[in-house]
Every structure is written in structure tokens, then in C-alpha cells.
Design a protein around this nucleic acid. Structure first.
Lengths: 213, 213
DNA sequence: CGCAGATGACTAAGCGCATAGTCAGTGGGG
DNA sequence: CCCCACTGACTATGCGCTTAGTCATCTGCG
């Protein structure tokens, strides 16, 4: 259980990218996360990767293209983390599935909080076409949560909650931690995932006590 | 129940500011919310207020000073919204107080989602001294939630939850909605406040079912 | 009341600088 | 010896902020 010594950002890139391109993307993630897209210069990104300012344009068409590659690959990786292979059979019921999805969603965002910050907060800097492509990927996340919630409600295992609003709340919890999560804090990504999975279950359970005011 | 026709941003400024200064701040809020602090030019702010580029420097020392005034006044207004006058007596128990605090926190962030976006996402653009001042104000929010939660736990009216983690989750729910809330959506700020107050209560209630995995 | 002088909000113009992106050239591995 | 990833030097543009100056409105004195 030693704390990580490798940069989680480097785990996001695949073999299809040249090593130098991966270094540039990693540098860009850290720059964009710290100063934002518009607050980052192309020199920051290049020199952060140990290269000259012009080297960025060998591998990417523009600064915006760098952001697009980061957000595209980041979103796809996050989706992969939710749809773990060998789980297509859905052996468990809605409560277990809700726990699994929520804890994975939260743990991924905690582990990759730096890259996720870029993926969540810098979307408005994308070109309309690129933004469209990202939004299409993003639609999968509420869809996945919604299917779990509605199944649980339909089978009577969850209280008759408003699925749309609960899904938004669950996504909010996972997304917002990229704003405050720090790896040197008290919780590991997995611990935080388990805690938020508990919260998710309590949110779809019948509440004792007085009716809603 | 007609939808608002006035800009909620204009409600944030007091009489201590010259009318033109208020117009500039309002313009700046919209610019910063849309393009971020670094993505906004001083010209955007001034011309958005119907003034020449230099007019900004008649009322503010710098672009960063504009951001500071926005965040300072925004945070103070949000605090006011939680500590409503005439409630110092605390007549009700922890569940009612939790409902009241959470619903007000959420409703304020929904109504002022544009200004709140600036207050939440642009803090890193502040100077260290200004940031310090804002952070001092910000500490009040978790403090207020924490007192409600611990009182409820101590009196046995809430389940024995981890107050620190629950408080963070509650704040996350309120803060993150500034990222996605739109006034033309299905929920009014008050409706959303009531829904999230229900969620808050369910989060501090004992959960039936299997133990945490 | 009248009017010169002071006041201060606002503007036109622009300075110095940093930015994103370009391109001819270089040098080291295959 | 060629190729191409990479560099140094460059350009056009746009930035935050300053400066010098305009003008409507006050202030006080005769």
C-alpha cells in the first residue's frame, strides 16, 4: 500500500502515440490543470516536456488540438474504468451494481483528479466540432447510472426516487472531487469510492422521519 | 411564479459601489463565467458595460482587483443567505436545521450559478494575499454544515456518520451545480434546494440492507 | 445670481510585452 | 547520405495598463 511514485497522468496514453507526443500531453495536462487552458502558453507545455517551443507543432496542429486529445482520451479512459471487462453478465442486483459503478467512478476521478480537472473544466475552450465529439462520449455516463437506478426502482429494491435528479447528484459527487481531492489527504481513491458508494445506496433508500417540506 | 427577468448578478452589489462600478462588475461576472479570468480581456469587461477600455481603471486598480471584488462580495452574500436573520434562536432540531441549511445553500448556488461559477472556479487567478482573504471567508461554510451534522450525531438523531466526509459531500453537491444548472431547466432553485435537502437527510440516516463492502 | 476655477469620470491613442503559430535549417540515427 | 524530429529565429497579433486630454458638473467668491 505504498503511495504512488509514478504520475497517474502517464497511464492515460496508448501505444498509438509517439513517446514524445505522450510527454507533451502529460506536460499539457499539468499546465492546463494548474493555470487553465487560456492561462497556459504553448511554451509552458513544450518546455515542460523538455523541448523547444516549436516542438509542440511537430506532433499537434494547435494548442486546442492538444486539449482535444487530452479530453478525448481522458473521457474514453474513464468510460473504460466503469465498463470493466468480464462484467457483461451482470451477476448481481441493482444495489451491488450501484455500488460498483459509483465506487469505480469516484475512484477513477480521485486517482486521475489532475487530468479529470482538465476534462471537466476546460471543455469550453474546445472548438464547437471537438466539443460535440466530447459531449457525445459524455452522454454515456448519465446513461449508465440511469440504467442502474431505474432497474433498482422498477424491481422495488430502491425507493421510488426521481432517477434523473439522483443521477445528476451522483455524477456531481464524482465530478466535484476533482476540485478538492488531494492524494496526500486522508482517503485513498478506493476508500473514497467505497464511502461514496455507501452514500449512493443511502440516497436510493427510503428515508425514515418527517415528510419533505 | 413567473421566471425572472432581472439579472440575478445585479443583486450582489451594495450601495457602497458607484453605479458604473456595479455595471463593470456585472459585465465582468458574465465574461469570467463564460471565458474564464485569463480568457477574458479588460476590453471585454469594459465594452460589455458600454464603456471604453480605460474606464475599468477609473474604478479598479487591475483586472485581478475586479475578480477579487467579485469573489469577496459573492462569498459574503452566500454566507448571508445561509445565516438568515431571525434564526439565531435555532428553534428546531438537527434534521430541520440540516434541511434549512442545505436547501438555502443549494438554492443560492442555483440562483446565482453564474456568479458562483466565478467564485468557485477562478480562485487560482487571485493574488496570494487576496486568495488568503477569500479562503478565510470560505472556511465558514464547512464549519456551519459540520456543526449541524455533529449536533445531530451527538443527539442520536442522525446515524453515526463521518461528519467530515459527509460535509464535503454536501458542499460538493451544492457547489457542483454551478457547473450544470440552467434556469430554463426543470427545477427552480427552491425546488432543487428541497430535493437536495431530502438527499442530505437520507445521507445521515441509517441505511437498511447489506453492510458496506 | 454669474462665472472662473477645480474636480473627477471617461476616452483616444498607444506603449511595452507576451502570445500562438511559422519556417528555413540542423544533426544524428538508419 | 537521406530523412525527419527537432530547433532558433522570426512574425503578426493582441494583451494589460498608462498617458494626456475632454467635458459635464460642482464650488465658492463677488
Amino acid at each position: 500500500m505504498t503511495r504512488d511514485v509514478v504520475d497517474p497522468v502517464t497511464e492515460l496514453w496508448g501505444d498509438d502515440l509517439a513517446p514524445v507526443a505522450r510527454t507533451l500531453l502529460t506536460s499539457a495536462v499539468h499546465c492546463f490543470a494548474k493555470r487553465g487552458f487560456t492561462g497556459t502558453t504553448t511554451r509552458d507545455v513544450s518546455t515542460g516536456a523538455g523541448l523547444s517551443p516549436a516542438a509542440l507543432y511537430v506532433h499537434f496542429r494547435s494548442k486546442e488540438d492538444v486539449l482535444f486529445e487530452i479530453t478525448r482520451r481522458g473521457h474514453l479512459r474513464a468510460l473504460e474504468a466503469l465498463a470493466v471487462p468480464g462484467e457483461t453478465a451482470r451477476p448481481d442486483g441493482p444495489p451491488a451494481r450501484l455500488r460498483a459503478v459509483m465506487s469505480r467512478f469516484v475512484a477513477w476521478h480521485a486517482r486521475h483528479h489532475v487530468a479529470a480537472r482538465v476534462c471537466q473544466y476546460e471543455l469550453s475552450a474546445l472548438s464547437p466540432e471537438h466539443l460535440d465529439e466530447i459531449v457525445t462520449i459524455r452522454r454515456e455516463f448519465p446513461e449508465l447510472f440511469r440504467s442502474v437506478i431505474t432497474e433498482g426502482v422498477d424491481r422495488g429494491e430502491f425507493a421510488p426516487v426521481d432517477a434523473g435528479r439522483v443521477v445528476r447528484a451522483l455524477l456531481s459527487l464524482g465530478v466535484d472531487l476533482v476540485r478538492w481531492y488531494r492524494p496526500d489527504g486522508p482517503d485513498s481513491p478506493e476508500q473514497l469510492g467505497r464511502f461514496y458508494a455507501d452514500l449512493a445506496v443511502s440516497m436510493v433508500s427510503a428515508v425514515p422521519g418527517p415528510p419533505a417540506g
